[in-house]
Amino acid sequence: MSINATLLIQIIAFVLLIWFVNKVLWGPISKLMEERQKRIADGLSAAEKGKRELEMAEKRAKEVLKDAKEQAQNIIGQAEKRANEIVDDAKTKAQEEADRVRAGAQAELAQEVAAAREQLRSEVAQLAVAGAGQILAIEIDAAKHQDLLDRLVKQI
């Protein structure tokens, strides 16, 4: 139970064991644990990145949707305006056409009335002259009373 050469053997055994432990146990496993740590860290950061990207995409999707809605609203508004315009236009045109047609018809009517009146007037004058001539065949000279006859024609 005293110090002897066993000490030297044990020192050698100890040093060798340190070398072996470093080689076959500490080295591989600590490397593996480091790798795993790195992988977990990478995974976590990737998940974080994915989450951020998803948030951004959602935001962008919302914006796009809002834009589309606004645009659709605009288009609908414009279309309604345009439709109103077209209807108004058609109405005005129809009104104008109707006015024109009515004006034409009235003018024709007036012309025909005037022509008929003229014809009637001259016929009545002839009738009156003929009647008066028959009654006053002697006394009345057509040439002499031309003034009177004209005045009569106008009064009719």
Binding site: N4, A5, T6, I9, Q10, A13, L16, L17, F20, V21, V24, L25
Partner: peptide, 24 residues
């Protein structure tokens, strides 16, 4: 004297060291 070797000590400790290495 000094050049005494404790065979049991050496054997058991080396065997346990070998066990560590083997299992590793």
């Amino acid at each position: 004297g000094f050049w005494t070797f404790h065979l049991d000590t050496i054997f058991v400790s080396v065997a346990l060291a070998a066990l560590i290495i083997f299992v590793s």
